[in-house]
Nucleic acid binder design. Sequence first.
RNA 1: UGAUCCGUAGCACAAUGGAACUGCGUUGGUUUUCUAAACCAAAGGAUAAAGGUUCGAAUCCUUUCGGGUCAACCA
Length: 604
Amino acid sequence: MSIVSQIKALVATELKNLYGQELPAAAMEESALTINTTKPEFEGDYTLVLFSFVKSLKKSPEQLGAEIGEALVKTNPAIFTAHNVIKGFLNLTISDKYWIDFLGSNFTNPVFGNKPANGQKVMVEYSSPNTNKPLHLGHLRNNFLGWSVAQILKGSGYEIIKSCIVNDRGIHICKSMIAWELFADGATPQSTNMKGDHFVGEYYVKFNDEYKKQVEALVTGGMKKEEAEKEAPIMKGTQQMLLEWEAGKPEVIELWKKMNSWVYAGFDVTYKRIGSDFQKMYYESETYIPGKKFVEEGLKQGVFFKKEDGSVWIDLTAEGLDEKLVLRKDGTSVYITQDLGLAQQKYEEFKYDQSIYVIADEQNYHMKVLKLILQKFKKPYADGIYHLSYGMVELPTGRMKSREGTVVDADEMVEEMVEVARKKTEELGKVKDFTAEELKELYDTIALGALKFFLLRVDPKKRMIFNPEESIDFHGFTGPFIQFIHARIKSILRKEQGARGLPTGQAGKAQVSGSLFKLEKELILSLEQFPTIIEQACVEHNPSVIAIYVYQIAKTYSSFYTEHPVLTAESEEKKQLRLQISEMTANVIASGMGLLGIKVPERM
RNA sequence: UGAUCCGUAGCACAAUGGAACUGCGUUGGUUUUCUAAACCAAAGGAUAAAGGUUCGAAUCCUUUCGGGUCAACCA
């Protein structure tokens, strides 16, 4: 049980003892108590906020605090050693022994903060790429978020199934296809030595260039712009191709398969590089059929209704939304049709308790409709659907726009970061004895650490700004800073291990007593919060909680070991204590960064 | 027009209704001692504005202003 929960329980007990008669029962509930970490400018570890009792007890906060504080210290001398009251805040000091004992029994535990399996199954759908262009910075935020949230849930005891829905059909795919037919002259990724997704993406761009030219030509010829956009030959050809695709015309299907396979080969490389993985892939070209079945079922049940022209709708006006189309009059499916089919398919296959969709916030409305429809169907899985909505990654000039060529490509971004990591590492020259292999791994670790941390440290639901000019820093509140602290701790532990011949994980098993310096206590106190932090991140589906916490741990350690030498501590006891602190800090950093999908090096 | 999210220092970000956190940048200092991707210190804030609720509001409510997104028989 965390120290905060313990304090709450003890305070609740004291409140009952002292004021059981006068206070309403609700005010003495543990959940009604506010415990904060004490601000650094005041003496103490944890603070109880007293204001909520003042009114019903008709006592001054000072008097109240003094009474509660005194009672706590008196009845629990092993935990509390002192208290003081400032302006309605009761600051409590926890005994050093408590912290030292906590440290002693947890510092070698590499899975501190993780919970045992709880038997619940959660699907996490993320990434959702389109097969007409390569991944960009926005996809990276999605991938990192999805992977990390899955990892956090896993650490919290859930069974996780990571899935990916590939948007592999539709007009945009046909655009790349028709451009390839027109301009490629048989070129392939192999013949041009290009990554498949980038190769196909180029033809998507070529389509748009050609389309624009054709529209302009028509407009110069006297046609209205709107009409020209419909009449441009390349667009008509694309629409024709889409119809042929739906009709299953062999040549079209073959081309579609070929180009998609190029894209998938490219995606595989990227996913492997950034550490994304999926237990189950879904393809829209397959889910739209169960989607149609779903609509039929809905018509039978009377959840959907058919209009005169044959189109199928659902009436959501009672829920404050509009009527929403679920099947076109020509019987073809729309976006939501496929998602309905997919939800059903996923549930039938995995019987999940919860299904998380990592999708940008521009689709909030869509996801709301999806969940609502499933609820109207009284599907057992409807309530377990959770849209993890995240904000767009924007440039200082605004949203990334492919038309303006401002899209930040994922592969390029990673390569640039690796290059910066290489340059910086060479400048510092601390790992000159590394093999080429080891160096490559280190550059990847640092580069991806910087990138992932940068994208995960911000609250997912907020949009964030990325400035390519300034690039991503390796100093301060960054992944590499935390990695550096980890490497330094490991360096200290290696030296100790060398001197003693102790196996890893055994540094300083000796009992420790005595008193703690401010920074020593501050660190242990923070380490103790790790399980609570994971829990919070899990409940909020928010990796930034972990990122901020791990940074704070690393920063505190950095101050701590600057001020207090570990290996040359003033006494053997202090040395053992600091080794324990160091080892636990390294464990928590590695474990916390692991929840973000970030590796930590032994040396850097 | 409606729905919804957001507005915190030059920039980027944090804060279960409880004593505004941090980084970049700026200015100064620290390396015969465990890796200076570091540490220490300083400057920088009516938390967009105005009301309201509360012992207490960046946080909750109302209004205004500014921005994003959605409201497609596109996916």
